[in-house]
Design a protein around this nucleic acid. Structure first.
Length: 282
DNA sequence: TAGGGACCTGCC
DNA sequence: GCAGGTCCCT
């Protein structure tokens, strides 16, 4: 099973080889063995099934994707177990992605872990304190200076301000509205929040709200898109207009599965872009 | 719209 | 320099 997305920021490997993760008020300690998972959790099994979309039949999903985009074949074959997560708490995904701009995974994970530590204690597992991710009020109350000294850099300012902006718009009601809104409107609304541009809006929709038609276009998807779909753009820069065109193209091609297609392209390029660039530049 | 630069920090 | 961008300014 391969999983990418915001929620992986709160998964880590324990010394005994198990993976410990938190989602909403649920925690999971997972041991993988052959083709099975052994899961210890404070929640019933359905929570785990839901989180990892284990109820999604990958075989028919792959067929649907390949029917629209045969160019995905090598990526699907390379990552046959790739899945989108389906998180419980949009607040966690939203604020996790506010940590990502112009940043790298390792540091992002540390920042997300710090934010989580502000939340209420859920449990203690293997000596590890498990925190529920803080709610909007708690996040909005974190002083910028505290985040600055905790290594958040300039994101120290946007994170509490974004929480306040959501609260001003109704808090959880705003989040529920985002969930129901047509895609383009939801994408626009999220960009009212400080620190949220087109890319983060797509990440938040895909990973925090499980809007599977969302297509975050980062450097990896830009490379894949110019390789497969827009060869005439090779060597040019990604602009706002091209960003929108890539998403629209992917949605037209893959419909509500565009986000899944994005994941295959992203995952492949993420793992192979260094060698690929070496090949093409030499 | 497109182009350019600043922005925190840490790793390659 | 650059990393899973955004914001602000010509």
């Amino acid at each position: 099973m391969n999983v990418t997305g915001g929620q992986v920021f709160r998964w880590r490997e324990l010394e005994d080889g198990r993976w410990l993760g938190v989602d909403g008020s649920a925690w999971f300690a997972v041991r993988t063995a052959a083709d099975r998972y052994h899961v210890q959790s404070n929640q019933p099994e359905q929570s785990f099934v839901r989180l990892f979309s284990l109820d999604v039949d990958l075989r028919s999903l792959h067929e649907a994707l390949l029917g629209r985009g045969p160019e995905l074949m090598p990526y699907i074959e390379a990552f046959p177990g790739l899945r989108l997560v389906r998180t419980e708490d949009p607040v966690e995904g939203l604020f996790s992605f506010l940590c990502t701009p112009n940043n790298h995974i390792k540091r992002i994970a540390g920042m997300v872990r710090y934010l989580a530590s502000v939340g209420p204690l859920l449990d203690t597992v293997e000596g590890e304190a498990i925190h529920r991710f803080p709610g909007l009020e708690l996040i909005s109350a974190i002083p910028e200076e505290t985040l600055r000294t905790s290594g958040f850099g300039y994101r120290a300012a946007t994170i509490p301000r974004a929480a306040s902006a959501i609260l001003e718009r109704g808090g959880s009601a705003f989040l529920e509205r985002i969930q129901r809104l047509p895609f383009e409107e939801a994408h626009q609304s999220l960009q009212e929040l400080p620190g949220v541009g087109p890319k983060l809006a797509d990440c938040i929709l895909l990973f925090a709200f499980h809007r599977t038609e969302a297509v975050p276009v980062d450097t990896h998807i830009w490379q894949a898109a110019t390789r497969h779909y827009f060869p005439e753009w090779q060597g040019t820069d990604l602009t706002g207009k091209k960003y929108a065109q890539i998403g629209a193209f992917m949605r037209e091609r893959f419909g509500n599965h565009a986000g899944w297609a994005q994941q295959f392209l992203f995952h492949d390029n993420m793992l192979n872009w260094r060698t690929r660039r070496t090949q093409t530049s030499s």
